[in-house]
Design a protein around this nucleic acid. Structure first.
Length: 174
DNA sequence: GCCAACGTTGGC
DNA sequence: GCCAACGTTGGC
């Protein structure tokens, strides 16, 4: 489950009341359907930080309430307001998620390097879905990764190319 | 900030 | 139902 940490991070969830939040704001039918049809109380999920300097898996959560109408769709002051949704016929639902554990940040690039995750939906090129299913094998592989030490960073910075030096020089001009 | 890859909208 | 235009996502 993706969230932009600027909006709501794993630390925000850890601080939230009952360490729980409604996963509001999903406005994609496929992602909604996963919450509505596939996610059950007690299921586990990864908390993924997206659209940020270091995208990747940041922690583990559990589903603590089944899908119910997303309140923000009725709130005209919310960025997630949907004028076509009515209380009689809500269009958007969300589950509740509860904090389980903050892990080390497992970067997207590291996930991409894992053979065991080659088929993972999250990593599929062009994938934009904010909620995607995880197989048991993928779950286990990632939890193992998260518990392992982070791989050592490269010993030295990448060598500067002529092109990037030119660019830097150009940018430095008054 | 750029851009590729999608999803949604709305005219026809 | 088609499809072009437009908006959004999200990595880089």
């Amino acid at each position: 489950m993706k969230s932009e940490p600027d909006e709501f991070s794993i630390d925000d969830l850890a601080r939230a009341k009952n360490r729980t939040t409604s996963w509001f704001g999903v406005r994609n039918y496929q992602a909604r359907n996963y919450m509505r049809d596939e996610m059950h109380v007690g299921d586990h999920a990864f908390f993924y930080h997206s659209s940020c300097p270091e995208p990747g898996i940041a922690g583990l959560v559990t589903i603590s309430a089944p899908a119910h109408p997303d309140r923000t769709q009725f709130d005209a002051t919310s960025p997630y307001y949907d004028p076509k949704a009515t209380r009689a016929a809500p269009r958007w639902v969300n589950v509740d998620v509860t904090f389980v554990e903050k892990t080390r940040l497992v970067p997207l690039a590291e996930l991409r390097g894992q053979k065991a995750l080659a088929g993972m939906l999250l990593l599929r090129p062009g994938n934009r879905l904010s909620i995607t299913p995880v197989t048991a094998a993928e779950w286990n592989a990632i939890v193992k990764l998260a518990r392992a030490a982070a791989p050592a960073p490269p010993a030295a910075a990448a060598p500067t190319t002529v092109a990037t030096r030119r660019k830097a020089k150009k940018a430095a001009r008054p």
